[in-house]
């Protein structure tokens, strides 16, 4: 029994230590903004633009596809039933609450974890294993400035922007379904959706964009730079980065729902 409790204690202590190290990493990354040298800023901005191209621009197609298909499926499978019971007004609530506020941010963040989070972990882990991170430090370049900060800011901006793309396409896809299956007019559809959209929904959606984006920027980078033993650890780091990011995104999503309902 004592052995079992000790094991739980060890597991808890390890977990808390990991969270502490991650929080310290995130804090150091943010604090490094203040020490970025003037000349380094131009280089970091170039790395940031590259990150935005990889994470945002090249992911637009995927997000449009996911969003369009999801909204079409959701609305097409519910609009006929709602019409039969005279509750077609609920389509707006369904669109705003389920897709725009909850699924939009969640699916966008998950898509970016799968697409860019994995790439960030693998790239930074390779940088570490190949001695590039040590070389950067040796020549007076802070890895936070050159490797972490551009990726963090890139992910925050990318997830926030892609979330807006997701929501806009979802609303359009929902209309397509409502019009073709339920015969709903554009004016009525938009009227229902807009009347269900509150300022709180918009604020929460934007907040989630920044928060989930920060998760995608921090956890994969942390895991990538934590590699110590060699190339065989890179796949493990990618798994840790991906699972950690997905878990954190779901926990934050649940916490936000809990906080707004409280």
């Amino acid at each position: 029994m004592i052995g079992f409790l000790a094991a739980i204690g060890r597991w808890t202590a390890r977990g808390l230590a990991s969270i502490g190290a991650l929080a310290r990493f995130a804090f150091d990354a943010l604090a490094s903004v203040g020490t970025l040298p003037g000349a380094g800023r131009r280089v970091a901005v170039r790395v940031l633009l590259n990150q935005l191209r990889f994470t945002a621009l090249e992911a637009v197609g995927l997000i449009v596809l996911l969003s369009g298909v999801l909204s079409y499926l959701t609305i097409s499978s519910t609009v006929a039933q709602l019409d039969q019971v005279g509750a077609s007004e609920l389509i707006g609530q369904l669109m705003v609450v389920v897709i725009v506020r909850e699924l939009g941010p969640l699916l966008t963040a998950l898509a970016i974890v799968g697409r860019s989070g994995t790439a960030i972990t693998a790239e930074l882990a390779t940088n570490t294993v190949m001695g590039e991170v040590r070389a950067l430090k040796g020549m007076g370049i802070d890895p936070y400035h050159y490797l972490v900060l551009p990726r963090l800011i890139g992910c925050v901006v990318s997830v926030a922007v892609l979330m807006i793309v997701f929501d806009v396409v979802a609303v359009a896809g929902g209309y397509l379904a409502a019009a073709t299956i339920g015969g709903m007019s554009a004016a009525r559809y938009m009227g229902i959706v807009v009347s269900n959209l509150t300022t709180q929904d918009v604020v929460l959606t934007v907040l989630k964009g920044f928060l989930f984006g920060a998760v995608v920027g921090v956890i994969p980078a942390y895991e990538g730079l934590s590699v110590r033993r060699g190339p065989t650890e890179i796949p493990q780091a990618v798994i840790r980065g991906t699972v950690g990011s997905i878990t954190a995104i779901f926990i934050f999503a649940a916490l936000i729902v809990g906080a707004t309902r409280a």
């Binding site: 940088n127 190949m130 001695g131 590039e132 040590r134 070389a135 950067l136 040796g138 020549m139």
Partner: peptide
């Protein structure tokens, strides 16, 4: 500083 293994990006 020239590190072992070069450390070129």
């Amino acid at each position: 500083y020239l590190p072992a293994g070069e450390g070129l990006l």
